[in-house]
Nucleic acid binder design. Structure first.
Length: 573
DNA sequence: GCCGTTTTCGGCCCGACTGTTTTCAGTCG
């Protein structure tokens, strides 16, 4: 099987880790890390690019040396430079870098003086007080290391965006209600709408001497105060999420918001542009020499380096700078553009509300339509519908639609894709539905080739419209099944089919990278909540965030259309 | 290791906080 981009990225990261511990040139290390990030975010596989004879050194940040390393990995599955490093230093040292307060210098020292190379040995030495005795270390550093090893085990991990929202919104409200505070906003990956966040960065505008820092750290939801200063503090909430607060003056609002929103790679790119224009850009503003020339708004920051405003969801240094320069930034889809929801479940299968309640909730949101997509019979666990029960539901929907004004339920189904790619219900039933959504719920472990063939075969069915949660992944719980997304997208386009962005907080499937690829290939997408209850309809904002991270515009999305227009699109000829 | 409308060599984003120090290195974001 061809080597995947994530594997390449992992090799480059491990190489960067070891080089950094060894004390290699910091910019060389950064070049490897940048390359790892680039590869991980590429919409196409490096293996395919090599096979197509493309010039890898044309990628930003990839020169001759890295291009030949990438080629080596693709062709041999190995990286000689990494293997060489691993002979000099134990590969497990990478793990130690992830421990807070341990960086490359200290890891190097621990290894050189105590011959410690993994977490277990480190924990043993720390318990004996051997770490505190090292120069530059002390009791506190040893304590922090021990605490991490004891409590966090394999690392704190990341928090799903929805959970982060639930934890952070109350903190924001509390800070907003503090005297002397004019504005409070969550920045970082939270604002960029990443599917998971490592920590949350909050930005507050306020007078110096405001009690906002005290309000922040003195609260029953705070389990631990990591640091506290006049402009910056860090806490860990009892739920385990780290939250940082920075306080800046009003005139720095835009510069600070931009800086703390990131991403890091985007910031570095912006600052570099600043430097070449003779400007210094930091969280306090844009400066020419000692003179402030902007920074009250984000627009001023972008303007200073000759760019239009770039939406937070695009700030990954993955082409947004070039697009901004050439005035071809996408006009991103917005929650207000959404006119309906194209996947939902009712009590007929595993949903929690009846048809009427779901219709009512969707109408109250201002939607024009809601597709009722209960499971098909194969999903026995959810009491999936057979042909008879589906027909009964269709009649109920027709009756209900007769009473509803300016709103309609769509007769639909989430039909299972069986092992051989055939569908779980006969065409005779599917043909009478308004919309057919298909999905894989079983047999995740097929080879890439067979899984791809299986799904393409399902899309061959002329009644099928949308492929739901196209990779089957569950964030932090289940890896995506192996499938050739490029072939799937090409296949969908040829057949006049569509892809879904499933907005469930644990799915968010497709990913941003795949969304972008879909747009490039001309495949339209549905943003669907897969609601199992009335409040689940709110997940739409998460799906829209994912679509925005994938550079999608309103026109790329099926359910920004009126039912009349959508119906035309769904006609497969 | 990458990169170039000042450069093919000499730069490479930048500031806050902590802990261990007596003025700063290391870490972090």
């Amino acid at each position: 099987m061809p080597v995947q981009n994530v594997e390449i990225a992992s090799m480059l990261t491990r190489l960067a880790d070891l080089l950094e511990i060894e004390g290699a040139n910091a910019f060389r290390v950064r070049a490897y890390r940048n390359a790892a990030q680039l590869v991980e975010g590429l919409p196409r596989s490096v293996a395919d690019m090599v096979a197509a004879g493309e010039e890898l050194s044309e990628l930003p940040g990839i020169g001759e040396a890295l291009a030949s390393k990438l080629k080596e990995i693709v062709e041999t599955g190995r990286l000689t430079a990494l293997e060489k490093e691993q002979k000099k230093l134990p590969p497990t040292l990478s793990e130690l870098l992830k421990i807070p307060s341990l960086g490359p210098k200290r890891v190097h020292q621990i290894y050189e003086t105590l011959q410690i190379s993994d977490r277990k040995e480190l924990e043993r030495a720390a318990r004996c007080g051997k770490i505190r005795a090292l120069p530059g270390f002390g009791e506190k550093t040893e304590g922090k290391v021990l605490e991490h090893l004891a409590h966090r085990g394999q690392g704190a991990g990341r928090t799903r965006l929805l959970v982060a929202e639930q934890l952070v919104e109350p903190v924001l409200d509390r800070l907003r209600a503090t005297r002397g505070v004019q504005r409070v906003v969550a920045a970082g990956s939270y604002r960029r709408r990443l599917e998971t966040v490592g920590d949350v960065d909050i930005l507050a505008i306020g007078r110096s001497g405001s009690p906002v820092m005290d309000r922040f750290v003195d609260h029953e939801d705070v389990a631990d105060v990591l640091s506290k200063g006049p402009t910056r503090s860090s806490v860990v909430l009892r739920a385990g999420l780290q939250v940082d607060l920075r306080v800046v003056p009003e005139e720095s609002y835009g510069a600070a918001l931009h800086y703390f929103t990131g991403s890091k790679a985007h910031n570095i790119a912006i600052r570099k542009r600043g430097v070449s224009a003779g400007l210094k850009i930091n969280e306090y503003g844009v400066f020419r020499g000692d003179k402030r020339v902007g920074g009250a708004t984000e627009e001023e920051v972008f303007g200073a380096v000759g760019l239009p405003y770039i939406e937070p969801e695009l700030r990954e240094n993955s082409g947004e700078m070039e697009a901004a320069e050439q005035a071809r930034l996408p006009k991103l889809v917005r929650l207000e553009n959404i006119r309906g929801d194209l996947q939902s479940h009712t009590t007929a299968t595993d949903g929690h509300f009846r048809l009427e309640a779901m219709a009512d909730a969707a109408r109250k949101r201002g939607y024009e339509y809601l597709a009722v997509t209960d499971h098909s019979q194969r999903v026995a666990m959810a009491h999936g519908l057979n042909a008879t029960r589906l027909k009964r539901q269709m009649r109920e929907i027709e009756k209900l639609n007769g009473r509803l004004r300016g709103f309609r339920l769509l007769k639909s189904i989430e039909v299972d894709i069986l092992d051989d790619g055939s569908l779980d219900l006969p065409d005779a039933v599917l043909k009478d539905l308004d919309l057919v959504v298909c999905a894989v719920h079983y047999r995740f472990n097929l080879s890439r080739e067979r899984q791809t063939e299986r799904i393409l075969r399902a899309l061959d069915n002329p009644h099928v419209h949308i492929l739901a949660h196209p990779t089957g992944r569950l964030i932090g719980e289940r890896d995506p099944y192996d499938v050739d997304m490029e072939r799937l997208l090409a296949g969908a386009r040829e057949r006049g089919c569509f892809m879904e962005i499933n907005a469930q907080p644990s799915r968010l499937d497709l990913t941003d990278v795949h969304c972008r690829l879909a747009r490039q290939q001309g495949v339209k997408l549905a943003i669907s909540t897969d609601a199992h209850g009335v409040t689940d309809l709110d997940y739409m904002r998460l799906g829209v965030g994912q679509a925005r991270r994938g550079w999608l515009e309103s026109g790329d999305i099926l359910n920004t259309r009126t039912w009349k227009d959508l119906r035309k699109l769904l006609k497969r000829d």
